[in-house]
Design a protein around this nucleic acid. Structure first.
Lengths: 248, 248
DNA sequence: CGTTCCCTTGACACCGATCAACTCTGGTGG
DNA sequence: CCACCAGAGTTGATCGGTGTCAAGGGAACG
């Protein structure tokens, strides 16, 4: 249970928050110390469920998770994919109950953090507080981009756009190697993220493969030509706000 | 330019924030004083546009607005409808540029507030700060519910769900009278909010009318049987968190 | 009195859903 | 070692919901 600054336990998390504006070492150290209470959640288990009273903030240190809701007819819609370094629910303890669930898609390592600690941290360390804010706003921008994706893009473009988003987000935490990254999603999960069906995802993936846009096998995705896929998807990364913070 | 506590200029705004937890009079007074710089934005004009560097926080005091993005092929997707009392962009000044636009759908009265004033307010007045947080989280929940709507519901249900949402949100600010409220949206705007086309909205509205679920004419919507429409839409208002705040 | 905006309607096309069957793989237990 | 099974991916046939295109109507407005 070491909490050294370079603790690899939470390196993705620190990496993500310090991406936009370099954080002081002391802030990075403080972040590392957050990740004291780490639990492993097995694939397909809920990290937190609809109706629960949230008591902790959850941070994905490793592995993939999904925010989702299940409708009365049994269909499921995923509203967010949570990657290493992502905070699941920074402020949700303000509300009484979870209105959705979060499930581990792979075995995940999750940090459970007391809301009070997080709050103090963001007050005592303004730069860190600002970085947390920034991350929250980008999460919202991703939500909006999913709405656009679901509302106005045809199937193939929708999938391509999702892949571009994941490429960009995973790049930030060092999980992309020359267009190639691990994509531990079943076609069913991709379907529930894009508002399509598993069968149709299958056909569109074949199209993307035949177009020479991607390689996808055994949970490994390679984007053969990133700009080409981005063009196909009408992907504009501006909403991810990867440029530096504004000077105020 | 009066700023009395019961200033009707911003009554919807105060009403909305004090809905969940009664705010001290002093807090309400402080909110009213925010609304000093009020401008009218005419229908179809942008309140703020994609690419702009945001300098103010915008609060809708009266009228309707929409957050939207236009794609390369000219299609538009609305990602949020902003009603009287809604804050458009509480924290967006942290980011360098707007990644989407906000347009007035009707003539609107918008309060332009300096971010610094808002920030001080939420630090100096904890209950107010908490109310602002709460509003932000509910806005996020609405975004997620739109994703579910677009991804997994058939057209008629989608429209019904939108109407149920608007009914609930407008109730909070006293704009609903026994299932009846003003709905100043063209069918095209409803289409761009639900990921459908204007033509199809037209047909589905007729279906809803023939089912005896709604009356809609001249921008006035009457939900004839609210529980019935909610059932048709699989609408569960829990995500709007209308219950009281959790005691912490 | 024309113009513009919005609503309405019909015919038709097509994207993606549905249903059903089959393959392949890895895991598990006999 | 083999038999079985569950989960994931694949494929084909068919259906249906929604989009597209085109035309016309009504109300508001200059």
């Amino acid at each position: 249970m070491s909490t050294s600054p370079q603790n690899t336990e939470c390196s993705r998390f620190v990496q993500k928050l310090s991406a936009a504006s370099v954080l002081p070492d002391a802030d990075q150290q403080a972040l590392a110390e957050l990740c004291t209470n780490v639990r492993v959640v097995r694939a397909k288990r809920d990290i937190i469920s609809e109706g629960d009273e949230p008591e902790h903030i959850h941070i994905v240190l490793d592995g993939w998770a999904a925010r989702y809701r299940v409708l009365q007819d049994g269909s499921r819609q995923i509203t967010a994919l949570l990657l290493p370094g992502d905070i699941c629910d920074l402020h949700v303890t303000i509300l009484a109950r979870m209105d959705h669930s979060i499930m581990a898609l792979t075995d995940t390592r999750i940090a459970f953090v007391a809301p009070q600690i997080m709050e103090n941290l963001s007050i005592d360390r303004p730069q860190l507080g600002r970085a947390l804010w920034r991350a929250t706003l980008i999460d919202e921008a991703v939500l909006r981009s999913w709405i656009v994706n679901l509302g106005r893009r045809p199937a193939e473009e929708r999938i391509a756009h999702l892949f571009c988003e994941l490429h960009a987000r995973l790049s930030l935490v060092g999980l992309v190697d020359n267009g190639h990254f691990s994509l531990p999603l079943t076609q069913e999960v991709i379907a529930d993220s894009t508002g399509l069906t598993g069968v149709h995802i299958n056909r569109m993936l074949q199209k993307l493969r035949n177009d020479g846009a991607i390689l996808l096998k055994d949970g490994q995705l390679t984007i053969l030509d990133v700009p080409k896929l981005a063009a196909l998807a009408n992907f504009d990364s501006q909403y991810l706000h990867r440029e530096q913070l504004r000077q105020t």
